[in-house]
């Protein structure tokens, strides 16, 4: 497969993540969408690394994975804190702070 096919898949995954982030209201699902976006970027990095024949892009993927893991830890902790205070993880219920 050529680089452009990998890139197309990556863009499709990224778009699904973006749309899901905007449309969905459940905090866990929204969080999964962000993870999907990060993994779409990983795919792009690996595809480009193969295209250029350089290792830099593949090394970047490891760092992105670490960031995604840290994000999971922090994000789930925050979601639990919100659940304790609001008794809900719907993002539309977290509307105490208003304009």
């Amino acid at each position: 497969m050529s680089t452009s096919s990998y890139l197309t898949i990556s863009i499709i995954l990224f778009s699904i993540g973006t749309i899901g982030f905007v449309v969905r209201r459940n905090a866990i699902v929204v969080f999964m969408c962000v993870e999907l976006m990060l993994n779409a970027v990983n795919l792009a990095f690996v595809a480009f690394a193969r295209h250029h024949g350089s290792l830099e892009g593949e090394a970047a993927v490891f760092f992105v994975m670490v960031v995604a893991a840290a994000e999971a830890a922090v994000g789930l902790a925050i979601i639990i804190a919100v659940f304790r205070n609001h008794r809900s993880i719907e993002t539309s219920d977290a509307d105490h702070l208003r304009l």
């Binding site: 979601i79 919100v82 977290a94 702070l97």
Partner: peptide
Amino acid sequence: VHSKDSAESALKYFF
């Protein structure tokens, strides 16, 4: 951790 506003601001900022 026991403040509604604080948790909510963390959630918004995080996402």
